[in-house]
Design a binder for these strands. Structure first.
Lengths: 104, 104
DNA sequence: GGAACATTTAAGTAAATTCTAAAGTATTAT
DNA sequence: ATAATACTTTAGAATTTACTTAAATGTTCC
């Protein structure tokens, strides 16, 4: 029950990144998702909960199943954070960065 | 002493993201870095250690100081992970994604 | 040499994370 | 109504994390 929707924290666990990757292909119920994982259904459900809190997945009720699907929007926060650093490695390749660093 | 250089884990802590941001401007010794943080010098040093294990910062000895600098290359792993999801949110905006989802 | 400085490492603690097993809640089937 | 299914939630153990304080290491200054 964490009120903070921490995207960076949510994607820090490899298992959760795998979950996102699975859900990128299509909407899926928990049982089907859990088949691919070497952990309890309960553990998978808990991971999905974390992703949900971060807004990275959506849940939809369909009978007794809960269908989960990817909601990639919050990843934009990561993308925009990263975009700040992108020039650093592209510049390293072009040599421009070195020039700018030496001429502030 | 974790042997795994986990970039995602390294950037998951807000304090460490701040550290990276600081070091993006220039090389700095630990004391100067720590001034901006509301924690012990020791804590900062430990965070820098985590970043170093992930390869995100470089350390250089200069007299009794250790000068830290940004090494953004490992962030490319995050960038390439993210690039997989980028089409999802751009497509949402253009409407192309919806079409592709509906016509698999 | 010894004191002051810059930093790391060690030791300990509190809190958060990740899991399991078991119990609880809906929903469907008989 | 009962039983089975699909899932969530709770409770608890084991591990990891994020700190603090204190001791240890290396470097410069006198």
């Amino acid at each position: 029950m964490d009120a903070t929707p921490d995207v960076f924290g949510a994607i820090s666990a490899p298992a959760r990144r795998e979950l996102l990757h699975m859900l990128a292909s299509r909407e899926m119920p928990v049982l089907e998702i859990a088949e691919s994982f070497d952990m309890t259904l309960s553990a998978v459900s808990q991971h999905l909960g974390v992703l949900r809190q971060a807004g990275l997945v959506r849940q939809r009720k369909d009978g007794r199943q809960r269908l989960y699907s990817l909601n990639p929007e919050p990843l934009q926060e990561v993308a925009s954070w990263l975009s700040y650093y992108e020039p650093f490695w592209t510049d390293k390749l072009t040599g421009l960065g070195k020039f700018l660093e030496e001429n502030p």
